[in-house]
Nucleic acid binder design. Structure first.
Lengths: 157, 157
DNA sequence: TGTGAAAATTTCAAATG
DNA sequence: CATTTGAAATTTTCACA
């Protein structure tokens, strides 16, 4: 299921608004896009069911949750075979420090975005969860100074 | 304002639930955490005002929005001075292809997460928006096979 | 897609422990 | 003083035009 879905300007506007605030009421959406609230509900329900909308999440301040340091870890998993990478992915996803995980084409197989309490926590994480593992051939750590979210995701013009 | 906030188990449970579904009703939250709906509203409002909750966003399927290819671009900006990097950041954030932007410690100054329509779109993006720029000294492109979100962000145990 | 009414939820002031 | 209660205001939702 990788098909693009036909989206008219109303759908796009609804997505754009909900990307800014996923808790906007159908009444407010209605006022903003100029169709009835019931139609907004209908549109959004359709977008949810069709899989365009995968979910709605909170954006949290990691610093205020006691994880002021973020980093990206490049990881080489060798040999890069299914029976090793499957468990590796699940293990990394289950770490409380992991925020996101990318499987990449290229010599660095994985990129892990982590949020930690500080440098010693990061060191522990790298040593205990990555370099100590047989399947992990190499890890490179990059600290994140700052992160920005970019504009809403919309279909190419 | 980088202070951690004191969060009790009820706050944590609310955050955990809302991270899965930011549109859960206060009534359902109430049933799940065992305090009155009005208290849930109060707690969540407090979490919003205190800045722990930064916002609530949709998670969308980039493929279904016509951007089936994602990549990470490592970018060196030279010289790495404020008067150059400020405009660079704003320009990158404004690109419709940009999803997220990281400022990193290390030889690769920035990492840009992009979603594009295909390889030719990616090529165009790299050539027109990155390598053609004076301040961009180097770009490395890594394709993303797959991306996973990880568990909810919670304070360290 | 819109209307309108019923059901459900949000929200707030007052009461409670 | 945080929490609940209970009722009013608002929003969601659905049958039907």
């Amino acid at each position: 299921m990788n098909d693009s879905v036909a989206l008219d300007p109303v759908d796009l506007e609804l997505l754009r608004l909900l990307q800014n605030d996923a808790r906007m009421t159908y009444r407010d959406l209605s006022a903003a896009v100029g169709v009835a609230p019931s139609t907004c509900l209908d549109r959004v329900t359709r977008l949810r069911r069709s899989g365009v909308i995968l979910g709605q999440e909170l954006r949290l301040d990691a610093s205020r949750l006691g994880r002021p340091l973020q980093a990206l870890l490049s990881v080489q998993v060798r040999p890069h075979r299914r029976e090793l990478v499957g468990p590796f992915v699940e293990r990394i996803r289950a770490l409380p420090e992991s925020r996101a995980l990318f499987h990449l084409a290229g010599p660095e197989d994985y990129l892990v975005h982590v949020a930690v309490t500080g440098t010693s926590d990061l060191q522990r994480l790298v040593l205990d969860e990555f370099t100590s593992r047989k399947e992990v051939a190499r890890v490179e750590t990059r600290l994140i100074f700052q992160r920005w979210e970019c504009g809403p995701l919309l279909p190419p013009g």
